[in-house]
Design a protein around this nucleic acid. Structure first.
Length: 272
DNA sequence: ACGCCCTCCTGTTGGC
DNA sequence: TGCCAACAGGAGGGCG
């Protein structure tokens, strides 16, 4: 589920609840997530004020008074929602961050690919964050940057878009959508892209992520924002999960192929 | 360094 | 209807 737009939507939904609040208690019901939740985390965060609620790539960052930061990753099927304290726990609810306002930030993740980590000091120096590519909505993600990292790469451009050491925030949905918008076939080798195509792709990535954020993300199955509402970008998808259906630009049937064990969708007529 | 493939986990879907 | 394989939004890690 959650690619950058969904994580950003979650961040925006959580922020009004979390800002300036104190963490009353962290309750971990199921520590067996993608990375085991540190046993000492509850006593480490209890009583501390939340000073900042940020995002880096697909990680939510909850900055605490005194310098530490909670890192929350939603994995494939995770949600973080603001619920009233005492709301009955459902299956796959793995932790509650209870706030002094009586709101709990509740993490639900059926597949348990998500994570709850803690960084001391600068979260950007955490091992899982330190080698991430620039933010796609920042100036650092420039034509020049993508041109440089695509040079000499034999990997397909679609797989490259999903490599978080080169591009962050773009997952399986938005990789297909960005390539459609840039009119580039997903199987092209990254190194074969022309300069103009790279520029077009940078703009396409930015545009699709911004539009999806504006729509509250894409809900295919599980995804819900912090208030429980689905995202509405699904109805704006051009190719993703539209195999066999007419391309919304030219009416040619959308095709599906497999790259790196992931499904890719494209229009054989619009994209070359 | 690079690129490919496997893995973690549960739930849903589609084919027989 | 039931069973089982395939597949699902991420991404670290191991291997050649």
């Amino acid at each position: 589920m959650p690619e950058l737009p969904e994580v950003e939507t979650t961040r925006r939904g959580i922020a009004p609840h979390a800002r300036k609040r104190r963490v009353t208690k962290l309750t971990v019901y199921e520590p067996r997530l993608r990375w085991p939740v540190a046993r000492e985390l509850p006593r480490l965060v209890a009583g501390r004020r939340i000073e900042r609620i940020g995002r880096r790539a697909k990680y939510l960052l909850i900055g605490l008074q005194g310098g530490g930061t909670l890192l929350i990753h939603l994995g494939m099927s995770g949600n973080l929602r603001a619920v009233p304290a005492g709301t009955p726990r459902l299956k796959h609810d793995h932790f509650d961050l209870l706030l002094d306002s009586g709101v709990a930030l509740r993490f639900n993740d059926p597949r348990r690919f998500g994570s709850l980590l803690y960084a001391t000091g600068d979260p950007g120096l955490h091992p899982l964050l330190k080698d991430l590519a620039p933010e796609p909505l920042s100036p650092a993600f420039s034509d020049e940057y993508l041109w440089r990292v695509t040079r000499g790469r034999r990997v397909s451009i679609k797989s490259l878009l999903m490599n978080s050491h080169l591009v962050v925030g773009v997952g399986n949905i938005y990789a297909s959508e960005a390539l459609f918008r840039a009119r580039i076939r997903p199987r092209r080798q990254a190194r074969a892209l022309k300069r103009a195509e790279v520029g077009c792709l940078v703009r396409a990535v930015r545009t699709v992520l911004k539009l999806a954020i504006r729509a509250g993300g894409t809900t295919l199955r599980d995804y819900r924002g912090a208030d429980g509402a689905p995202g509405y970008f699904r109805q704006r998808l051009y190719v993703y999960e539209r195999k066999g259906q007419p391309c919304r630009r030219c009416r040619t049937a959308v095709r599906m192929l497999t790259q790196g064990q992931r499904s890719t969708y494209y229009c054989p007529s619009c994209q070359s």
